[in-house]
Design a protein around this nucleic acid. Structure first.
Lengths: 210, 210
DNA sequence: AAGAAATCGACCATAGTGGTCAATTCCATT
DNA sequence: AATGGAATTGACCACTATGGTCGATTTCTT
């Protein structure tokens, strides 16, 4: 991001980022209000336009930022030595959770971004910015022999991914609604329930692994 | 809905409903524009406010309408004699598909509605308007004995439901992006892939049923 | 032909828009 | 303490879009 913006107090920086993420994920570009953004970020109008020359530029910088953030988080936090598919999925979910904890509207913003980007553009951007990372996440160094051989592997992996995505979305939704404290222990326990079930369903009959 | 509005040409009625659903699902209430709604519905401003006295009323009538529409569709189209869980899920998905075909923004509107309604309100409304229908959908007259007895039944049912929801969402997303014709055959075939897999995973080892 | 119902769209006061810029505050260096 | 450059403010601007009104016009019914 801009040199000026990069070197400011991180707490203020995150306030601005979060405020902008929220506004842009709730409204499409035209109706997103810079007035709202500065109000929620608790800065003046002038300062925002000092950091970014226009609403458009702010949005574009925000796109770059989120993409880079996610790529970095994955690259730095996945343990590629772990070969169990469920552990990999769990790790990705954990990373996602931590990101959302810091930037609550990151996910919504991403969804909106993807919706407004053409298939071809997406493919290209993913290649440019992340190399083959997206392809690797759920495939690199995974021990697929653990899966039952009589099932459709691709489909099974998709279902597992979907389950965790839905689980995350619903937990998040419930969390926002009840406004309760984030009970990490309970969440993990519930996730484990689904993991256990999917292991039973898709893995070969138990033999001690390793 | 309003007597005046109820008796008009259904084609025009749907144009208005769809236009309003789109606008309200894309923007939160304050930023949703009645100007946009009338423009896309191809009616005059005056007519909209002849049918509905205010933007607020339009929105509330729209809420009622969507809820009733969904309840009716389910009640009239589910075959409660079919006891296979996957068939039930399939039927619900089909109903959803047909509704979305007629009202493309119905789903988004519902999501937005649910997000903006408190848990307590939701529980109450569901009870009032649908009785125990919501509870029944995936439980009434289902032959649960087909499921493996060594797995968590609740969790398995949830995964199956989630899989179909995700499948629907992704298909819909892809459809909008590619703007290809709706290839129903191919879609059903792909869905069948997941059904087969989940049957293998969660049902008891095959014995001929019936 | 007449009266009623449906439909139109120009019009209104108001609120909100992205962006500017002179003025102020802050702070490191001397 | 004094200086000067950087950070920060918010009143201000021309402009657009807002929800809603209402008299005029068209369409329908008898």
């Amino acid at each position: 991001m801009d040199n000026v913006f990069k070197n400011i107090d991180p707490e203020k920086r995150d306030r601005i980022i979060n405020s902008a993420l929220e506004e842009f994920s709730r409204n499409q570009f035209d109706k997103a209000s810079t007035n709202n953004i500065v109000k929620n970020a608790k800065i003046s109008k002038g300062l925002l336009f000092h950091y970014f020359n226009s609403k458009k530029e702010l949005y574009e910088k925000l796109e770059e930022f989120t993409i880079q953030l996610i790529i970095d988080a994955i690259q730095e936090n996945i343990d590629w030595n772990i070969t169990d598919f469920f552990e990999r999925v769990k790790q990705v979910s954990m990373i996602k959770g931590e990101l959302i904890y810091q930037y609550p509207y990151l996910y919504d913003f991403m969804i909106m971004m993807i919706e407004n980007t053409s298939v071809e553009e997406l493919r290209q951007k993913s290649e440019e910015q992340s190399g083959d990372l997206v392809q690797k996440i759920y495939k690199y160094n995974i021990d697929f022999l653990k899966f039952r051989s009589d099932i459709n592997l691709e489909a099974a992996m998709t279902i597992i991914r979907w389950t965790f995505e839905k689980f995350g979305e619903e937990s998040m939704g419930a969390l926002i609604k009840t406004e309760k404290e984030f009970d990490f222990k309970q969440l993990e326990q519930e996730a484990e329930k689904y993991i256990e079930l999917l292991r039973k369903a898709f893995y070969k009959k138990e033999e001690k692994s390793e």
